Amino acid sequence: MENYTYNSPTLQLEGLNVSKDSTYPLFLFLFFSYLFIIVANVGITFIVFIEKTLHQPMYLLYWNLSVNDILGNSAIVPRLLIDMWQPASERIITYYECVIQAFTTHMFNTTSHTVLMIMAFDRYVAICNPLRYAVIMTNKMLIKLTVSAWGVAFILVGILLGLTIRLNRCRTLMRSIYCNNAALFKLSCESVFINNVYGLTFTVVLFTGSIGSMVLTYTKITVICLTSNNKSLNSKALKTCSTHLVLYLILLLSGMTVITLHRFPQLSEGRKMISLLSHIITGILNPIIYGMQSKEIRRFLSKLFDSKKVLPSF
């Protein structure tokens, strides 16, 4: 018979089930991946903040992605690196820490979609209405878009976790490598029908909104490119939109895969790795694609390193 502990203040994370031989390579991979994510994204946020020529809508939207990557990965990876060296029975986390981690991870995933949606709108305006770009993408509009991206995610995730917090818990073992809403409400012995309904609605609304916005904007961009003889415009559209679309598809497919694998408990280890890699891969690709591909950011870095090579003469 299963033992029940009601509303325990501490929970146990199942963690990654890896062999001893795989622990060191996996630890090094996660450690250096996290180090790169932090250094690269902090570097981009700092450059965009101090360089006045980068105070443009496109780069300020990049800034949102970098901040999101820093928060999302910092909520998961450091804790996971520590837990890898702990026995299963000692992977303990307090309930309140778990709720905060779950909120942060769901904010990361949701905001990744909403920020990419407003970036698609920015690309649509830049390519389809270039003469009116400065009139449309004003500072006021940029603030509205940014607040909307984070605000919508905050409200949706807040309700998601709020419905879970109201439940009494009768179990303490979380079948996950980090805290998330599904793992949390599965700790309850009460009815989770409302949680499942809202979780499904949440997913449908988010995915329908993001997919719909991408299809709409890219359809209009494609029409403009096909009907235009402007090679410069078409080249710019291909360069900026292809990378944006690739990152979005990676985010979308990884999210759908994790959600699907939740229906197959026997594939829990695969779900754990995919959910972890979805954080790591997007955190690595975002600064590489959006940061290093930018001529302005590369020019700033080039000037910075060139200035350091110049030695004072005596």
Rank of each mutant, 00 (worst) to 15 (best):
M1P: 10
Q12P: 01
E14D: 12
K20G: 12
Y24H: 00
F29A: 13
L30F: 04
F31G: 04
Y34G: 03
L35W: 04
I37W: 02
I38V: 15
A40D: 04
N41M: 10
N41W: 08
V42W: 11
G43Y: 06
T45V: 15
F46A: 14
I47D: 06
E51M: 09
K52Q: 07
Y62S: 13
L65M: 11
V67E: 05
I70S: 00
G72W: 10
L81Y: 05
I82V: 14
E90C: 08
T94D: 07
E97K: 11
V99T: 04
V99M: 13
T104R: 05
T105M: 12
M107G: 05
F108D: 01
F108W: 09
M117P: 01
I118D: 08
A120T: 05
F121A: 01
Y124C: 02
A126Y: 12
A126G: 09
P130C: 08
Y133N: 02
M137R: 13
L142F: 14
L145K: 06
T146W: 14
F154V: 10
N168C: 13
R169L: 14
C170K: 02
C170R: 07
C170V: 08
R171N: 12
S176V: 07
L184V: 06
N196T: 06
L200G: 10
F202T: 00
F207G: 03
G212L: 00
S213T: 15
T217K: 07
K220F: 15
I221L: 05
I221K: 11
I221H: 04
I224Q: 14
I224D: 09
L238M: 01
K239F: 12
C241I: 00
L247I: 05
L253H: 06
M256L: 15
T260E: 05
L261H: 04
H262D: 09
F264L: 04
L267A: 12
M273R: 08
M273K: 01
L276R: 08
S278V: 02
I284F: 00
N286T: 07
Q293K: 08
Q293F: 08
I297R: 09
F300D: 00
L304C: 03
K308Y: 15
K309Q: 10
